[in-house]
Amino acid sequence: MENEMISTQYLVMIVTGVVLGTTARLLTIKADYRQYPSYPNGYLIHVITGFIAASLGAVAIPALMTKNFVAVTFLTLAIQQFRDVRRSERESLKDLENTEYTYRGDAYIDGIAKTFEARNYFALVVALVSSLTIQILNLDQMWINVIAAIVVGGITFYIINRFSKGKSIGDIADVKQGKVEIKGSELFVDGIYVSNLLGSDNAAKMYEEEGLAVVIYPHQEHYRIGLDNFGQRQAILFEATRALGGKRYHFSRKEYDEGRIVITLVPITGDINKLIDTVKNAPVLESVKKSSSLMKTKYVGRE
């Protein structure tokens, strides 16, 4: 019976790995201005999947050390599980598409789903590295092993968290207030034509009195490739309506000469500063990101 029990060393290794991995997942659940995932059910789901990911990472080393090589193949199960997390996240967001003020768009949903999948890998990797640290040190004073695992796990978390962090619109462009003008039934922002949907007097009056607009000015010419992308603009518009509410109208428009992007809406609440902050904080989608330096390189491709 004694031989069938797990040793104290492995128990400490597993518990440390699980705790650190789950903590890594907890630290990456952010309730920022986007309010997603929502408290409390969204939190619970992601903490539990993070805990499972951490458990899988933590038991990998003890499994190897006990010559249980087949058991390591359950890491492939982990990959499958994380893909399911991505799939369920995508399905859930797509189900909500028709109930929001505006569409998130497929590109944004894909980005969010990938982020949730990636954050489970954080938990797995941190747990794996922590338990590996304990195994490598293998000191008699168990508390030194644990402290070393915490330090190494923390560094690992910092590195992968930094690596996976994306840019936001404020990093690649200036966001300034735009001047709303109504000419007949047409809406202009800073002289850029946006829409002619304001056919009725009520609509024109509402937009004139309550409409807010911002104009995005890309810092570099090549940032236009990403900013002009329909999915990217839809994501920005979604964030704007999500933060300020959408009373009636919301539009995005691109201008071709200078690459300016207009985001305009009639909000339920909030002011222009809140709109500017929201647009600046909107993420640059992974699927539209392009590396201009990579495009210039001569290392790959034809002569």
Partner: peptide
Amino acid sequence: MAQDLAKAMKADTVK
């Protein structure tokens, strides 16, 4: 007429 129709059908108007 345009306004009444737009209200009834929760739609937008273009002139």
